[in-house]
């Protein structure tokens, strides 16, 4: 077990070195899209994603913005996609389903931690009960 642990440690370190100790930074919309993919489980495709984002954020979302973000996330290997079925109601065009990858989950966690750290410093000041604002 000790040897295995050492090997794992070495691999992790070398991977970190290879990646230049790269941290995960997500844009706001990238984060929203990743969360929407998780929430939709196996049904995360363009229409479902756009509608969920629009409903939950309460602001108009274009399908173009969703797709350009998905393309970026796919290039970063945060998500993976597969071609779905083509239906008549889509003019015979196929759906593309997206699912989140391990790197995507790690990026979300990292973003969440950063936000939590930042809020931990300023939350009391924003609390109207404390009367600081």
């Amino acid at each position: 077990m000790g040897i295995l642990y050492n090997v794992e440690e070495i691999v992790n370190i070398s991977l970190d070195e290879f990646m230049g100790n790269q941290k995960y930074y997500l844009g706001e919309f990238e984060e929203i899209v990743l969360l929407a993919i998780i929430r939709l489980k196996g049904n995360a495709y363009g229409v479902a994603l756009r509608r969920l984002i629009e409903e939950e954020t309460g602001r108009g979302t274009s399908i173009g913005a969703v797709y350009t973000t998905l393309e970026r996330l796919e290039k970063k290997r945060y998500v993976r996609s597969r071609q779905g079925e083509a239906t008549a109601e889509r003019g015979g065009r196929a759906k593309r389903y997206f699912r989140i990858e391990g790197a995507g989950v790690a990026a979300l966690n990292e973003t969440n931690e950063i936000r939590a750290r930042m809020w931990s410093g300023i939350a009391p000041e924003l609390d109207p009960i404390s009367g600081a604002v």
Partner: peptide, 13 residues
């Protein structure tokens, strides 16, 4: 690739 998927999504909506 997007022509198939995105235009299909828009047509569905």
């Amino acid at each position: 690739r997007e022509r198939i998927n995105l235009l299909g999504d828009l047509e569905e909506e």
